[in-house]
Amino acid sequence: MTESWTPESPNLVIHGDNLDVIAALPDASFTLVYLDPPFNTGRSQRRQSTTSVRSASGGNAGFKGVQYERIRGDLMSYDDTFEDYWSFLEPRLTEAWRLLTDDGTLYLHLDYREAHYAKVLLDALFGRECFLNEIIWAYDYGAKSKRRWPTKHDTILVYVKDPQRYHFDSEAVDREPYMAPGLVTPEKAERGKLPTDVWWHTIVSPTGSEKTGYPTQKPAGILRRIVQASSREGDWVLDFFAGSGTTGAVAGALGRRFVLVDRSAESIDVITARLEAAGIRFESR
C-alpha cells in the first residue's frame, strides 16, 4: 500500500499495477519522472476521417484544453493501433504531470514507432512551451537491415512542469570525449565536452557485468546522465515502468531517493537482487 508514502519514506520498490499505485501518491512529489513504457509495434496505418472533440474545460492550449482533445481525437481516428496504445499510456502520463514538482522534469523513452505521435500529444498535454528536448540515443549493435537504413536509435522526449522553474544542472553531467580533440585546446580535450541532444552510447553488453538478463534493460550510463542533470541529491525520482531497476540503481548510487513500480514479478525479483547487490537500501511493498 502506498497511502502512507511521504517525502520522508524510504526508497520503495512496489509490485502492482502502476496506475493504481501512482494514483495513491501525493501531488508534486517527484523532481524527476523517467518512463520507459512498452513500445507499440505492429502499427496499422489505416487513415479514417478525423473528428474534433471539445473539452468541457475550454481553453485553447495546454493541459486538458481544446487543442489537446482535438489532437487526441485526430490521432486516434487516424490509427486504431495507436488508440489502444495511447488509451493505456495517456492516463499514466496525466498522473506523471500531477506527480511532478514545479521544478520537475519528465523523460519519456520511446522508439521510432511512437515518438512522433507522443510528441504531438505531449505538446498539448503539458503545453508546447514545456517541451525541453528530443534526445536521440544512438547505438550500433544487432541485426543490420539491407532493405532500409538500419534503425539504431531510441527517442527520449523531455518535458518540464514549469518552463520558468525547472531544474537542470549541466555541470553535474559526466562529460564525454571530443570527436575531434585536435580542434580544441589540450585543456578542453582533457576535460571533455558537455553532451548534446544526441547521445552515442552502447546498449547493455550481453556479456558485461551490468547485464541482469531482463530483456528491456537500459544502460546505466543513459540514466546516470538524466538523473545527474534533472535532480539533486535528496530529490525523489519515480519510474513506474521499472523493468530491470536501472533508474533505482543509478538514483541510489547518486544519492537520490526513488520509487520503482512494476507489475511483473520477474521485474521485481531482478530489481530486488540488483539493489541488494549494490548495497542500496529500500523497502518492498
Rank of each mutant, 00 (worst) to 15 (best):
Y112H: 14
H109N: 01
P215R: 13
R98L: 06
G104L: 06
R147N: 05
S284F: 07
R256F: 05
Y178H: 09
F258R: 02
A273I: 10
F88V: 07
R191F: 13
A265V: 13
L125N: 02
F241C: 03
I271C: 02
A189T: 11
T105W: 10
A253P: 08
E176V: 13
V237P: 03
G73Q: 07
D269P: 11
I268K: 00
Y139A: 00
P10E: 15
Y78P: 02
D36H: 09
R92P: 07
M179E: 15
Y117P: 01
T212C: 04
E210P: 02
V227Q: 08
I280S: 06
K144A: 07
L275C: 00
Q67C: 12
L122H: 11
R43N: 12
V227G: 04
T155Y: 15
W199G: 00
W5D: 08
N40I: 01
D123F: 02
R98K: 14
L121S: 02
T247W: 04
E190R: 12
A229E: 09
T207I: 07
G182P: 06
P163I: 04
D162T: 03
A265T: 15
L157S: 00
S4M: 13
W200E: 14
P91F: 06
R175Y: 10
K193F: 08
D169W: 04
Q67E: 06
H15K: 14
S230N: 07
G42T: 12
D74T: 14
T151H: 15
P91I: 04
N133R: 12
F240C: 08
T6V: 07
G58L: 03
E190L: 15
G208E: 08
R72G: 03
A118I: 09
A251Y: 11
V13R: 01
M179F: 11
G104W: 00
Y214K: 07
R224Y: 15
L194F: 14
P7N: 06
A23D: 14
V259C: 05
M76V: 05
T94D: 10
K146G: 03
D197A: 11
N18S: 04
G142H: 15
P195N: 11
I14S: 10
E83L: 08
R70Q: 10
E171L: 05
F131S: 03
V173I: 12
P163T: 08
V173T: 14
I268R: 01
R165I: 10
P26I: 06
T155I: 07
A96F: 04
I135Q: 15
V66W: 14
C130S: 15
D235M: 08
E233P: 01
K218L: 05
W199K: 01
Y78R: 13
T51P: 09
Y214N: 04
V173M: 12
G243S: 02
H109Q: 04
G208A: 10
P219M: 02
N18W: 02
L89W: 01
M1L: 14
K161Y: 04
T202H: 11
I156F: 05
D84N: 15
A143L: 14
K144T: 06
G62F: 09
Q67V: 03
T196N: 05
